[in-house]
Amino acid sequence: MIAFALRRLLSAVPTLFVLVTLAFFLMRAAPGGPFDGERTLPPQIEAALAAEYHLDESLWRQYLRYLGGLARGDLGPSFQYEGYRVGELIAAALPVSLSLGAGALLLALALGGAIGIVCAQRPDGAVDRVLGAVVLLGVSVPNYVVAPLLVLLFAIGLGWLPAGGWRPGTLADALLPTIALALPQIAYVARLLRAGLLDALAAPYVRTARAKGLPERTILFRHALRPALLPVISHLGPAAAGLITGSVVVEQVFNIPGLGRYFVQAALNRDYTLVLGVVLLYGTLIVMLNFVVDLLYGALDPRLRPA
């Protein structure tokens, strides 16, 4: 088992390598540099800055320099946040994004799961139709509309919750952003689970179980739920990576110091090292989560267990 995990992680190294290379050269191909601003720098100053950050070297040397740093576990200095290392920035933002993302994931699973199960019990019934429509609404409204609406309603209108900000460990701060982050995922989980359950409930072994006179509840939870969870899990793997690395929209609207905005801002600021840092983090998460998905698959469906 451990050997299998190690092999999986090792086999991810080339993937991550290609990823970093791709991102490195893509970023460098974009016009403009990290020190371009509305206030043009005098040429001598610009040259001094370029030398300080090794931007005066050939692209290949910079690439090798970056890889060398990576081998030593150093993600380099940030170009945008002077005085901070990329590693520090990520280490500071990751716990925030992680707690938000995990909360959103749990919420999506719990609420989406409940809706999916309720809907699957009476397909095309009134409850199914109403909930189905609500759930679809969740995927159909962009979250930059939902998030400010939540703030207007719960923070300004009712005054129940803060409009933004992040104090570590404060549930009130996390509530609205978690909901905003989870909404689309609730919908996906509910839809996938409902479809999966309906398939499973039509399967021969469930009919057998029914024929044996087992109660509907037992059939649902003992027999149908396991296979029905498979598509949910394979969707949630990559989705979790997205949730954990945060969302620009939610972080911007709620003023949260998470990772999500680095994906956008670092690219726009040409903060080359920070871009590579977050891309690498994302890639690693995807690899790890895919591994977790495979393990869960094995647990839910013995046929898929690795030899």
């Binding site: 993937t15 991550l16 290609v18 990823l19 791709l22 991102a23 990559p238 690395t245 620009v248 994906f263 956008v264 690219a267 871009v275 977050v278 891309v279 994302y282 890639g283 995807i286 690899v287």
Partner: peptide, 9 residues
Amino acid sequence: VLYALPFMF
């Protein structure tokens, strides 16, 4: 490999 690339970026 492309799956592991953050799409937004």
